[in-house]
């Protein structure tokens, strides 16, 4: 494996994230930017540009290196285009997307892609480097305010942050007149027991390429409502899920097995 990947993996393990800013080609950056301001929510994943982003060979190779398996799949439980229009809007509090399990191997990474430059006043993502190796609950994290060592991701268009899902992160408030998109998605170690739903259009989009076909081999086609609600954590009624509703990686894997029984 090349030295760049090794260096980045060390940084990833130490700080909980890396944010390469020049991996995505300018032509693809431009295409994603056009789509990101037009297609909100999960519809962004039906766009060719974002299909190309998720299937990007260098990104997928690096994720395989991080997860220590060639068998990488997309992890759709946090697919979303977080588009904030220009003008003042609030941010969101500190949270984690997954429970850190020191005794289990890492099976999932969280990705946050920025289609445009993000300045200090455009609602940048905030991260706490090194915070990924703790067990947090939503009642704890939601009360946190300023944190020593916190970092704002003020980035150039085309930057892709790859993080532990267990890293503390938040969205700062938006004060600029410029809109800001952040395309959130994930990858995981492929597991046939952990299927998920995609719309036909999204599946067709990913399956244009060999890489995309490999990433979506466990996907099932459903309509948009089903993809949104039944492949998504928010409305699951299990006590554990409600209590740890932000923890959707390691915990989510087990719950997805539970979801299969419900269908």
């Amino acid at each position: 494996m090349n030295e760049t990947f090794k260096t980045l993996k060390k940084e990833f393990m130490d700080t909980g994230y890396v944010a390469p800013e020049d991996w995505i080609e300018p032509e693809l950056v431009a295409r994603i930017q056009t789509d990101a301001f037009e297609y909100k929510g999960i519809s962004i994943f039906e766009r060719e540009s974002v299909g190309d982003l998720l299937s990007h060979p260098k990104v997928v190779d690096f994720v395989a290196f991080l997860l220590e398996t060639p068998d990488v799949a997309i992890s759709p439980f946090r697919f979303w285009n977080h588009l904030t229009p220009g003008g003042v809007s609030d941010g969101g509090g500190w949270h984690v997307d997954d429970t850190y399990m020191a005794d289990l191997p890492l099976t999932e990474v969280l990705c946050m892609y920025y289609p445009q430059d993000v300045t200090e006043d455009m609602g940048p993502t905030m991260l706490l480097p090194g915070s990924h190796r703790r067990l947090y609950t939503p009642p704890q994290t939601s009360k946190l305010g300023w944190i020593r060592g916190q970092k704002k991701l003020v980035v150039k268009a085309g930057t892709l942050a790859i993080t532990f899902p267990s890293i503390l992160h938040a969205k700062a408030a938006h004060f600029s007149e410029k809109p800001r998109s952040m395309v959130k998605y994930g990858y995981e170690a492929g597991d046939p027991a952990c299927g998920y739903y995609l719309t036909q259009a999204a599946l067709d989009n990913f399956r244009r390429t060999e890489q995309g076909r490999a990433l979506t081999r466990f996907a099932e086609v459903r309509d948009k409502q089903d993809v949104l609600w039944n492949s998504y954590w928010k409305y699951h009624e299990s006590y554990t899920f409600q209590d740890f509703k932000h923890q959707i990686g390691v915990v989510g894997r087990r719950l997805r097995k539970h979801l299969d029984h419900e269908v």
Binding site: V88, D90, G91, G93, G145, I147, A172, A173, F175
Partner: peptide, 19 residues
């Protein structure tokens, strides 16, 4: 030393999440 802090009360503030 202080790692993190927050402040709550019956007041309005310039509350836009931007610690």
């Amino acid at each position: 030393g202080v790692i993190s802090w927050n402040y709550f009360g019956p007041f309005s503030s310039e509350y836009r999440f931007d610690p």
